[in-house]
Simulated scan of single mutants.
Amino acid sequence: MTATGGSVFLVEDEVMIRMMVADMLEELGYKVAAEAGDIAEAMRLAESTEFDLAILDVNVNGKVISPVAEIIKAKGRPFIFATGYGSSGLPEQYRDRPALQKPFQLDALGKTIETALRGA
């Protein structure tokens, strides 16, 4: 797996942010494998989609992302949290995972993805 060309599963409830992150991913050379805007859809897609990495909004429509993270962890795939709350906003059992503070820049996204993929 090289630094580019991987596929990303993106979970974000705000459509504009999701579109912006998808554009950033494409600019970095990644492909968006699937996108979800709610927990139920995210759980279904996490189980049925092949991807190299997931970017998970911590709080999706007021619900914590943990059930989706559990599925991805069980699949043995790395994931990154995107949060407006800093690392204290992360689900406790995932505080060791990479997190992006929203709003984030392209270079921060790229570096965080590389770190997550290297650690996988």
Rank of each mutant, 00 (worst) to 15 (best):
R77I: 12
G76W: 08
R77S: 13
K75R: 15
G89W: 00
P103K: 10
I80T: 02
Q101M: 12
F81K: 09
K73Y: 06
G86T: 05
D107Q: 15
P103I: 09
P98V: 03
E92M: 08
K73M: 04
A82Y: 06
A74V: 06
Y85I: 08
G89M: 03
L106I: 13
A82S: 14
Q105R: 14
D96V: 00
R97G: 03
F81M: 04
R95W: 00
R95T: 12
Y85V: 02
R77Q: 08
P103V: 12
R97W: 11
G86L: 09
Q101D: 14
S88W: 04
Q93Y: 00
Q93E: 15
L106G: 06
P91N: 01
Y94D: 11
E92C: 00
P103S: 05
Q105V: 10
S88I: 11
F104D: 02
S88Y: 09
P98Q: 10
T83N: 03
G89H: 01
P103A: 09
P78G: 02
S87N: 14
F79M: 05
P91M: 01
F79D: 05
A74S: 14
A82H: 07
A108Q: 14
F81C: 07
P91S: 04
L100P: 07
P78A: 10
S88R: 13
A108I: 12
A74G: 08
A99V: 03
L90N: 02
P78S: 10
P98N: 03
P78Q: 05
S88A: 13
L106N: 05
Y94E: 11
P103D: 11
G84I: 02
R97K: 15
I80K: 05
G89Q: 00
Q93I: 04
Y94H: 13
F79G: 05
P103M: 02
Q105L: 13
L90S: 01
A82T: 07
A99F: 12
G76S: 05
Y94C: 11
D96K: 13
D107V: 15
Q93M: 06
F81S: 06
P98S: 08
K73G: 11
F104E: 04
K75H: 11
Q105F: 13
L106V: 06
F79K: 09
F79S: 05
P78F: 08
S87C: 12
Y85T: 02
F81N: 07
K75C: 04
G76I: 06
Q101I: 01
G84S: 14
I80A: 01
A74E: 15
Q93S: 10
R77T: 08
Q93D: 15
G89T: 08
R97C: 14
Y85M: 07
K73H: 13
T83D: 07
Q93N: 08
L106F: 12
Q93T: 11
D107Y: 14
F79W: 12
L90K: 00
A82L: 02
D96E: 14
P91K: 07
P98C: 09
P91G: 00
K102L: 08
Y85K: 05
S88F: 09
L90P: 02
P78K: 09
G76T: 01
R95M: 10
Q101T: 10
A74C: 04
